[in-house]
Design a protein around this nucleic acid. Structure first.
Lengths: 222, 222
DNA sequence: TGTACATCAGTGAACGCGCGTTCACTGATGTAC
DNA sequence: TGTACATCAGTGAACGCGCGTTCACTGATGTAC
């Protein structure tokens, strides 16, 4: 509207042999845009090109079509997501604290990156070489291990299959966080992280509640 | 590809004074299309018009724009959804059987209408006069009542706030069913309805498991 | 050290598409007189 | 019973838009001789 908009980035062309850098710029810009609009469907190849100050056709030197770009974005998101969860559950002392921290980190990532999170678990991920499967299995394995550690430790009384518990837990967290993201106008009675803790404890049947940092919703919504 | 496609419906113009019938046709066609594509984003006003054999502008006599059409669709879906859940939980004898039947019906609706279900709880519902709020609150109230009946009956031991339990349960079911819908290629170890029952029982802390029809996944996927 | 050349990192124009929306219109039909 | 007219239920053409994708190209730069 004014004349003072910065315009598209004034790019300098990459040096010879370094054309591959554009690929990273593309993926990163696309991820940002999904983050901002909260929506894959509104991501367009042309808009990505515009944002990084490049012509639309130059994207085709790195991706054969727009679906491959989307797959690349989702791959990057899964990597970030896994890193965030692992980071969160590492420093914890007791296994049950680590499990809760991991679940909190799961939800925090979704709150911080609604667009990517929605995308990763949507039916919009282009199928053929989707990284959802291996990444999802790995995530579930990590969660299973965290639950098993609680069982070994005695913090979880039940001897139910930890893989099964992990699956129920995953689904429950997914539902909790998605509803909050998608229906922000709903009159949610509790802060999200209270519900997350409560759901974890109920589903895995904890015996003792960890004494440590119980309910500080690191950056709770609202 | 052949020449034998039926073409667009060969409509007869509504009689004078009955133009309102087109409105229903529009909403119903739009709902069907969301059901088929599984996706609101791919719904277009022109495609709806094409399907019912009418010109695109004639939709504007019933909806001021495409967003109002979407809101009308979501309203209809919520009504159907509530009816299906109420129908399912009515005939049950014991309250706990009614609760389980209600939860099963919740998931069954989602399985049968993936597109509408996803839409209803997505951030794509146009905001201003979205019917999500009242319908969601009513649904939660019904679930709360069902849980409270179990507590009164003694089937649920805990005296925890039934409204709170209903919320956790809703979220968990939402997550279970959405993950199955959106990641069908994931190696789900159990049938969905087993997980649903299990989640209900764990979350609300049932004392006795109902003897009746336990695990017939009325029309389970796969 | 100089030069021809291949390659690299892009660009600009153009294509056909489906979309939401607006506009002026048409023809059938019920109604008032 | 007949007729003029208002209204109703739509239609057809057109608009401008952003999109994905293709095509032939350009100009800088590293490299072989």
């Amino acid at each position: 509207m004014g004349g003072e908009q910065t315009g598209p980035a004034l790019r300098v062309r990459n040096r010879r042999g370094e054309g591959g850098q554009l690929r990273e710029e593309i993926v990163s810009a696309a991820t940002q845009m999904i983050n901002e609009t909260g929506d894959v469907e509104r991501l367009s190849l042309r808009a990505v090109a515009r944002r990084i100050g490049v012509s639309a056709p130059s994207i085709y030197q790195h991706f054969p079509d727009v679906d491959h770009l989307k797959v690349a974005v989702v791959e990057g998101c899964f990597a970030q997501f896994a890193a965030a969860r692992d980071r969160a559950s590492r420093p914890a002392g007791e296994p049950i604290a680590a499990l809760l921290a991991r679940c909190r980190a799961y939800c925090q990532f979704a709150l911080d990156h609604p667009g990517p999170y929605r995308f990763m678990f949507s039916h919009h991920v282009p199928r053929p070489d989707a990284p959802t499967l291996p990444a999802g299995v790995a995530a579930l394995n990590a969660l299973t291990a965290s639950i098993r550690a609680c069982q070994d430790d005695g913090a979880i009384a039940t001897t139910d299959d930890p893989g099964h518990l992990a699956l129920l837990l995953w689904a429950a967290l997914h539902g909790l966080v998605l509803l909050r993201l998608n229906l922000p106008q709903f009159p949610w009675p509790e802060p999200l992280f209270d519900d997350v803790h409560d759901t974890v404890l109920r589903l895995v049947g904890t015996r003792r509640v960890p004494p440590g940092p119980r309910l500080e919703p690191s950056r709770s919504p609202r």
